[in-house]
Measured scan of single mutants.
Amino acid sequence: TFVEFNGKKVEYPTPEAAEKAAKKLAKKLNLKVTKKNGNYKLE
């Protein structure tokens, strides 16, 4: 499962880990999380 932000793509071993990381990053970077095709994107 990938988390995409600032043009970077980071892969996580589980969807749970990706979701957790996405939410944490979104909060830190003041972005919102969108889920697309099972992957997460911060914008």
Rank of each mutant, 00 (worst) to 15 (best):
T1F: 15
T1W: 15
T1Y: 15
T1Q: 05
T1P: 09
T1L: 07
T1N: 12
F2K: 04
F2N: 04
F2C: 11
F2G: 03
F2P: 00
F2V: 09
V3K: 00
V3F: 05
V3E: 01
V3S: 00
V3W: 01
V3R: 00
V3D: 01
V3N: 01
V3M: 04
V3C: 05
E4R: 01
E4Q: 06
E4V: 06
E4T: 06
F5I: 09
F5H: 08
F5A: 04
F5E: 01
N6R: 11
N6C: 15
N6T: 03
N6E: 11
N6Q: 10
N6A: 10
N6W: 14
N6I: 06
G7Q: 05
G7V: 00
G7S: 05
G7T: 04
G7C: 13
K8A: 09
K8N: 11
K8Q: 12
K8F: 13
K8Y: 13
K9Y: 12
K9G: 03
K9F: 12
K9A: 09
V10S: 08
V10M: 12
V10T: 10
E11N: 11
E11Q: 13
E11C: 15
E11F: 15
Y12E: 00
Y12V: 00
Y12L: 02
Y12I: 01
Y12P: 01
P13Q: 08
P13L: 09
P13N: 08
P13W: 06
P13S: 11
P13R: 10
P13E: 08
P13H: 07
P13V: 06
T14I: 03
T14E: 03
T14F: 05
T14K: 02
T14S: 10
T14Q: 03
T14P: 07
P15L: 07
P15Y: 05
P15N: 09
P15M: 11
P15K: 10
P15I: 09
P15V: 11
P15C: 10
E16T: 08
E16Q: 12
E16F: 06
E16I: 09
E16P: 03
E16D: 09
E16C: 12
A17L: 13
A17V: 06
A17K: 09
A17Q: 10
A17E: 12
A18E: 00
A18S: 01
A18D: 00
A18H: 00
A18M: 01
A18K: 00
A18Q: 01
E19M: 10
E19T: 05
E19V: 06
E19D: 07
E19C: 15
E19A: 10
E19L: 14
E19K: 12
K20D: 10
K20T: 11
K20G: 06
K20Y: 10
K20M: 12
K20N: 10
K20C: 14
K20S: 11
A21C: 06
A21R: 04
A21K: 02
A21L: 03
A21D: 04
A21N: 04
A21F: 08
A21H: 05
A21Y: 07
A21I: 06
A22C: 07
A22I: 07
A22F: 02
A22N: 00
A22D: 00
K23D: 09
K23A: 11
K23E: 11
K23S: 09
K23I: 13
K23P: 00
K23F: 13
K24M: 13
K24Q: 13
K24V: 12
K24I: 14
L25H: 02
L25Q: 04
L25W: 09
L25M: 10
A26D: 02
A26T: 02
A26L: 02
A26H: 02
K27F: 09
K27Q: 11
K27R: 11
K27A: 12
K27L: 11
K28R: 13
K28C: 14
K28T: 10
K28M: 13
K28E: 13
K28G: 06
K28N: 09
K28S: 10
L29W: 13
L29G: 04
L29R: 04
L29Y: 15
L29I: 04
L29P: 01
L29C: 14
L29N: 05
L29F: 14
L29S: 03
L29A: 04
N30Q: 10
N30A: 07
N30E: 07
N30M: 07
N30D: 08
L31A: 05
L31M: 12
L31C: 10
L31R: 02
L31I: 04
L31N: 01
L31F: 04
L31E: 02
L31P: 01
L31V: 06
K32H: 10
K32E: 07
K32R: 11
K32Y: 07
K32I: 15
K32G: 05
K32N: 08
V33K: 01
V33A: 04
V33F: 05
V33E: 01
V33T: 03
V33Q: 02
V33I: 15
T34R: 07
T34C: 08
T34D: 05
T34H: 08
T34E: 08
K35P: 04
K35T: 10
K35L: 14
K35Q: 11
K36V: 15
K36L: 15
K36Y: 12
K36I: 15
K36N: 13
K36W: 11
N37P: 02
N37D: 15
N37C: 14
N37V: 03
N37M: 06
N37L: 06
N37H: 07
G38H: 05
G38S: 05
G38P: 04
G38Q: 05
G38F: 03
G38K: 05
G38N: 09
N39D: 13
N39L: 09
N39Y: 11
N39F: 09
N39M: 11
N39A: 09
N39G: 15
N39Q: 08
N39K: 05
Y40A: 03
Y40P: 03
Y40M: 06
Y40H: 04
Y40K: 03
K41I: 15
K41S: 12
K41Q: 14
K41V: 15
K41G: 06
K41P: 02
L42P: 03
L42E: 03
L42S: 02
L42F: 05
L42T: 03
E43A: 08
E43K: 05
E43Y: 13
E43S: 09
E43L: 09
E43I: 13
